[in-house]
């Protein structure tokens, strides 16, 4: 079975991922303003498509963001994190 693995860009963010029944929950802490701006761009991209429940962003105190990602958009979300260089690498591995 193929599974997506990624390496976080630790200079910009810390990230934890938690798998729920129907979605994935990410807690992302941005370390710089640049990282916060990139995360905002990511949100703008997913908010602009008028599909409201695929990815939900919640801004918390201390530069922390909770992101709830529906299963079917997990891969696009991770790829966008890579595109914005908040991840260093992404690869499929057989497990």
């Amino acid at each position: 079975m193929e599974k997506l693995f990624y390496m976080v860009n630790n200079e910009l963010i810390t990230l934890t991922e938690h798998r729920n029944e129907n979605d994935f929950e990410f807690l992302i802490h941005t370390k710089t303003n640049e990282a916060a701006d990139r995360l905002r761009k990511l949100r703008e991209f997913f908010d602009s498509d008028r599909v409201y429940t695929d990815i939900l962003f919640y801004a918390r105190k201390d530069h922390e963001y909770q992101v709830i990602v529906r299963r079917d958009v997990y891969v696009p979300f991770v790829v966008h994190l890579l595109q914005l260089q908040l991840l260093k690498s992404v690869e499929w591995r057989t497990v």
């Binding site: 908010d47 409201y52 429940t53 939900l56 962003f57 919640y58 709830i68």
Partner: peptide, 11 residues
């Protein structure tokens, strides 16, 4: 209102 409603209801 609809997007923020979905967001809060999910939370």
């Amino acid at each position: 209102m609809v997007p923020v409603t979905f967001s809060i209801a999910r939370q």
